[in-house]
Amino acid sequence: MSVITPPRKDHTRTSDLRLVLHQVRYEQKAFWINKVGALFTIGFSVLFLVMLGATNGKQTISYLGNITNDDYYVPGFIAYGIMSACFSMLTVNIVVRRETGLLKRLRLTPLPTWALLVSIFISTAIVAVAQVVVLLLIGRFGYAVPFPREWLAFLFVIVVGIASFTAMGMAISSVIPNQETAGPVTSVAFFVLLFLSGLWFPLQASSGLAKFSNFFPVRHLLLAVRAPFEQQPGVSPWAWHDLGIVVAWGIVAAVVAMRRFRWSPHRN
């Protein structure tokens, strides 16, 4: 039976790259095939931005240097777009796939764990970036909100936001026991935090609510995304403090996710 002499390794870097691209293609297919789901995910942030912009977009916010509500909402919903794709959408996706046995089935194949996780990450990032681009364009051309003053800082925030919130999504999915609770639990937690963090109603930095929500990463991502948009001279586009807190959450979440990630449904 000379056929079965094990070479131990029959994959190369090229074949690994091809494998990841292959899986990303199917992750994307799975996302876009559900048109209602895709529209809901992408369209929600756009819908909010358009509604809020239409309601009171030109009002200025005195305690934020007299920027308009539009100036406030565009970066806010960009942050929201990242969080909804990487956090709430991803969490539900992972829990459903785990609890129905889809992940376990993938585990029976030679697709390595890292390749699956990288593919999920890339696919989630594509959805997040698509939203960012749409929101930037709507803000610029629909509401005359200038593009970020500092593109490098903006891109950096986007990358950090996507990476950290993906880690948080993975961590949360690992502690949710079943698919029935995944949707409600994540969306309630997510929307409460968004509300408290001032996505819809700008907070004064000194308020009690701001101090409370400063503990969570949501508010810090909102602030970090807004910084590169600041047009006032003297305000740094790099919100290092906020970025640091987001990254810290991301690292803790990544550790939890790696320790607790499981393939099999809880019923087994």
Partner: peptide, 16 residues
């Protein structure tokens, strides 16, 4: 990984 490339597994009750 080498083994999973050469071993097929058909279990019960796994969704597609």
């Amino acid at each position: 990984r080498w083994l999973r490339s050469r071993v097929g597994v058909v279990l019960q009750e796994l969704a597609v």
